[in-house]
């Protein structure tokens, strides 16, 4: 249960950061915190959920959780790379705040 609480707390902290921070870097970092919390919840649930833990079925569930978390890791890496590329492109135009980019066009 404590793992679930910590994961939800981290997700909420990240959400608060996304809502309040006005700098693109800080918003990106907050999104990373949210995704970290979500992945942690996945891992916690897969390793402790139900009565299967400790048995062969439980080990299989835990392995599935690890496999999905590994896939998620790659997705988050792609997200960070694209986000930072957009950031670099925006900063070249002198824009670093979320409020500076009300419009996005080609």
């Amino acid at each position: 249960m404590s793992g679930i609480v910590v994961a939800c707390l981290l997700f909420s902290l990240g959400l608060y950061g996304v809502l309040t921070r006005r700098e693109i870097v800080a918003v990106l970092a907050s999104i990373e915190v949210m995704l970290g919390g979500a992945t942690l919840l996945l891992v916690v649930l897969s390793s402790t959920y139900g009565t299967g833990a400790g048995t062969a079925a439980g080990a299989n569930t835990a392995a599935s959780g690890q496999a999905v978390a590994l896939l998620l890791l790659a997705v988050v890496a792609a997200e960070a790379a694209v986000g930072l590329a957009v950031l670099v492109s925006l900063v070249r135009h002198g824009k670093t705040g979320v409020d500076d980019i009300q419009r996005v066009r080609g």
Partner: peptide
């Protein structure tokens, strides 16, 4: 949930 067990 149950506590984490070894061998996972």
């Amino acid at each position: 949930s149950v506590d984490v067990t070894a061998g996972q």
